[in-house]
Design a protein around this nucleic acid. Structure first.
Lengths: 107, 107
DNA sequence: ACAAAGGTTAGCAAATATGCTAATCTTATA
DNA sequence: TATAAGATTAGCATATTTGCTAACCTTTGT
């Protein structure tokens, strides 16, 4: 079981691979969470954009499935404008149960 | 209770104020979580940096108290290199109990 | 069909983070 | 004290995100 790590480490040395691995494999589904928080706050993309002094195109970009370049400053502004708190947690590797519970607790 | 929101909205129109509000008031303590995850993985800043193909100064920057410009791509690489999962959750506004529980569950 | 509101996309300048080097400070330990 | 490892900081070029405009697509309702 050591070879996989060795192999991955090798792949990860390539910048382009790292980037696409993050984008296409390690999907955190932030976009869906943004959209869900916004809907629960009964806001349109335009209305949310206005609250945080940006434009609807920026919100759309954040809710788009194939975006991954999120920053905490902007995510935080979005969360607050939707009446929520943004929680960032370094947690132990998750089991399926963890994921189910996390889904229940979040919006 | 409407005046505070009106006042804050006015203040928030100023870009410099927004920036400093995020940095100095809305402290998410990401730096502490990064340091804690790294320590639990028994890694030095240099060792962690090597794993994610950056330098120790970048790690130090992320662990510094007065930094706030975190990006999810880099936080995610850090979390994984420390053997943890990064969880981003838009949650209901927290009570003190919520915070206590979150602290217990995270590293 | 038409209009209006909500949402998406492209493209670009400005702002911001990243990667990097080198110098410096701390701490532990021989 | 001297040495080495760990950590912090400054400064800069490069890379990435943000804010913005304008065009376009979708959906809803008349």
């Amino acid at each position: 079981m050591k070879k996989v790590k060795t192999y991955m480490d090798k792949l990860m040395e390539d910048k382009e691979f790292r980037k696409r691995f993050d984008e296409e494999y390690q999907n955190l589904c932030i976009g869906e969470q943004v959209a869900r928080a916004r809907h629960q706050a009964h806001l349109t993309q335009s209305a949310l954009a206005k609250r945080i002094h940006t434009t609807k195109s920026a919100i759309s970009r954040y809710e788009s499935a194939d975006y991954s370049g999120y920053s905490l400053p902007l995510l935080n502004r979005i969360a607050n404008a939707c009446g929520t708190d943004l929680r960032i947690i370094f947690s132990a590797k998750q089991t399926k149960d963890d994921l189910r519970i996390a889904r229940q607790n979040s919006l």
